[in-house]
Design a protein around this nucleic acid. Structure first.
Lengths: 225, 225
DNA sequence: TTTTAAAAGATAGTAATACTGTCACAGATA
DNA sequence: TATCTGTGACAGTATTACTATCTTTTAAAA
């Protein structure tokens, strides 16, 4: 039997559900490739259409604009990652061990997940590192937030925040520490590879360094209470 | 006597030095206002030109494109902030006190600096919070870095990293901790005001909370060694 | 005081981007 | 057989991101 993993997406993010047609799946698959290759700024629906072999108008029938598509992709990633985290920390009782596991999952290179046919999680992970913040660093963040576009991200932060609280019920900043871990798992990776003097891992370029840093950051903050 | 503060800027960032003419100063002043008001995505040289009362071509004589202008503005900010930090921690011997002072400066609302005529530091601080990451989250980050565009940012990180090392010479991640403090001083502020559930300060919206969080994060990481 | 060169203004033009609209066709559904 | 849905094929518009040229103003050098 072949299992399939489906992430439930916010309907306001698209005009037509890309999961429900070949063209839709092509849009997701090729947009991930193109954004990863050329960056979000250089990415246009025209180029995407040419890449797929369809027309610009065809893409617009699925997504209103490229911002919504980026939000869709990042939201998908956070939803997928939360599933991964729940799955992989499922039967771990000790919250400390669970938190370490989460940090490792956040900061590790992602391998392609066989359960999701048309999404390349490895590339998507890279996109979330390099372009993910642009999904919310906009003037419309308030409206987008009202439409629940960032729910998957906020849910993931809440999950991590709750594990932190389990480890240390009296810790005062579980949410901020959670968002710090998540953002830094990505930013330290970007810095390590692009602006290495901003990190202590520029020489080795090993993500194990990032994991150690985050572990020390988190556990020295919460342990002593 | 009226003092004037000049930040030495990288010449590769502009075509003509905006500090050396009225039009140039107008470009800086009005671009800060416009980007703060409408966001970087909606900001165009045409709108800027109309705002100033000049023409598009006039702006292009100073800056190659809006990306360079954004990098210029953020670089200016980091240069100015490093000066502020050096100035305001000048005669503090205890590195712990100095580090606390730095964290406060990083996370506090900026008031307009009288020494810099045409730059509104308060607005510029907001721009750095909302748009600053876009200066380096691009495909050209490598080339831009080679041209030293991010030197002021990296210098500031180095300054903070060195204070961390002074506090705790054996701490293993001074650079990563420094970049984490700087990024989080801004991200927690953005989250607090726009995606409050990602922080523990969404109710009060007080930056004193962010300062306490960062202090605890930093000093629990480095103290125990 | 005249000469000259640089900066700024005025205007035009181009290629690409970010869309919207319409018509026609193919395949599935009723 | 009629019809509805998704897609392809075009056409078209406003805005963006520039580049080029020519003229006027300004400011310093001869």
């Amino acid at each position: 039997m072949k299992l399939q993993l489906q992430i439930k997406m916010n309907e306001a993010l698209f005009i037509r559900n890309p999961e429900q047609s070949d063209l839709g799946k092509n849009i997701i698959q090729h947009s991930i490739q193109l954004i990863d290759k050329n960056g979000f700024e250089a990415f246009t629906f025209k180029k995407l259409a040419e890449d797929i072999g369809t027309t610009e108008a065809g893409i617009y029938r699925y997504f209103e604009n490229k911002h919504k598509l980026l939000v869709y992709l990042t939201a998908w990633y956070w939803g997928w990652l939360e599933f991964q985290i729940n799955y992989q920390t499922n039967n771990i009782k000790d919250p400390t061990v669970r938190l370490k596991r989460v940090i490792k999952l956040l900061a590790s290179t992602v391998e392609d997940d066989e359960l999701t046919g048309y999404v390349n999680e490895g590339l998507l992970h890279q996109i979330v590192i390099s372009e993910g913040s642009k999904a919310y660093l906009t003037k419309q963040v308030g409206e987008d937030n009202k439409l629940q576009f960032f729910k998957p991200y906020k849910d993931l932060c809440a999950v991590v925040g709750n594990i932190i609280l389990e480890c240390s019920p009296k810790y005062k900043y579980p949410k901020s520490l959670a968002s710090t871990i998540i953002e830094m798992a990505h930013f330290q990776n970007f810095f390590m590879n692009n602006l290495p003097s901003l990190t202590d891992f520029g020489k080795t370029k090993e993500e194990t360094g990032i994991i150690s840093f985050l572990n020390e950051l988190v556990f020295s903050s919460i342990k002593k209470l």
